[in-house]
Amino acid sequence: MLLMGVTLSACRSAPTRLFSLQAIAPSAAPSHGPGAPNAYQGPALRVDSVTVPPAFDRLELVTETRPAQLKIEDLDEWSAPLVDEARQTLSADLIARLPAGRVIFPHLMKPEGTLGLSVDVLEFHADDAGASMLASWSIDAASGNHGATGGTATLRIPLSAGTSPAMVTAWNQLLAQLADRIVDSLGR
């Protein structure tokens, strides 16, 4: 009986942890831009798409143990695909940084003249040396009369990475920084 119990218990899977990204308010983020709320008065914008490096775009969390060595955390999963999470979070970050009504929620219809923001995260690293992200964004000026067309940013934060929660923090903070940069480019 004891043996059977042991055998059965051996068949049980370990519990899976689910992770989700979260927006960070501008004051909480280590900001590089002006601390004051942006007075952007241009056309509204919507985050059309966010892409992440394919290596990280998995159901499971991927951590970087050493440079260029990735590890799939089998028991830690994203609660939604990372690209969707990133799109939601970036939208929330922008809402927190721009005046009300300037950001259209990601799944709403784009009214005429709305700007479309596409973000491509080309590189993402989070190892013991810290976390970094190389991202580029472009603004599709639907009405064709807006000056801001996009930019590229290399972002970096100090972090002791290597675990799943640390990875989530790295994503949160770097996306918040990216939102800051985008807001800056809009304000100019």
Partner: peptide
Amino acid sequence: SLADYLQRHPESLLRGKKP
């Protein structure tokens, strides 16, 4: 993802997902 995991941990079919 499932195929991937099974390829890396075929024993999980019997023993379940383990850290």
